[in-house]
């Protein structure tokens, strides 16, 4: 069901405040609503693949939630994956639900933990970034990196940038190099972030030179 709502400023047009009622703050704003007009989820990336993924997740939730309520705990992982894909669950709640799930096949476990890692990072990025907060975020990202929890997709670039900024501030050449290599792998060769990578490579060279001089 495709519905386009136009904010027109024409006097008398129906539902002039629908955008703000559905938590929209700008245009364009893409969401999924249920038949009562309740917000199910905000649309993710603006690609056909992401749209299809969102639809599947909505369908999964609709099918699996009643089963879980009826006591079928085998659907827990799939349900949590769907909620994480739609971004309809807070990190702490997702972490609690994840802890209660065991006996997963390797592929489901990997998918679930990656989505949880992505949520952990995106949650830590909420709110304004003061100088102190930025330093805390860099430290937290470095800790996630060293623990092997690295966000993927659209989050990868900002994540690795934070790790490298922390490594540069603490003159940790090894960490910087590891994060740079992972960043290159994550964003691929044809990324619009190639210039950023080149800049980071120059920083690494300087850090290595400085380290050699000290020795």
């Amino acid at each position: 069901m495709l519905f386009c709502h136009l904010t027109t400023r024409v006097t008398g047009d129906k539902y002039p405040t629908l955008l703000s009622e559905k938590k929209g703050t700008g245009f364009p704003y893409l969401v999924f609503l249920d038949a009562d007009g309740n917000l199910i989820a905000k649309a993710g990336e603006r690609t056909v693949a992401a749209f299809q993924k969102s639809l599947k997740a909505i369908a999964d939730i609709k099918t699996l939630e009643p089963k879980q309520k009826a006591g079928d705990n085998s659907v827990g992982a799939k349900l949590l994956i769907a909620k994480l894909q739609l971004g309809t669950i807070a990190y702490e709640e997702a972490k609690t639900q994840r802890a209660a799930i065991s006996k997963l096949d390797a592929s489901t476990q990997q998918e679930l933990d990656q989505l949880l890692t992505n949520l952990e990072f995106s949650s830590s990025m909420q709110g304004p970034a003061t100088k102190e907060v930025s330093a805390e975020r860099q430290l937290a990202a470095a800790a996630m990196f060293e623990a092997g929890r690295c966000p993927d997709g659209q989050l990868a670039t900002s994540f690795y940038s934070l790790v490298m900024t922390h490594a540069e501030a603490t003159q940790n050449v090894k960490l910087y190099e590891q994060a740079l290599n992972k960043c290159k792998q994550a964003i691929g060769a044809n990324s619009p972030f190639q210039r950023l990578i080149e800049q980071r490579e120059k920083v690494l060279e300087k850090m290595k030179a400085s380290e050699t001089t000290k020795k």
Partner: peptide
Amino acid sequence: KPIFVYFSRSY
């Protein structure tokens, strides 16, 4: 089916 909503503006 759910509703997919595209909010836009015309002004």
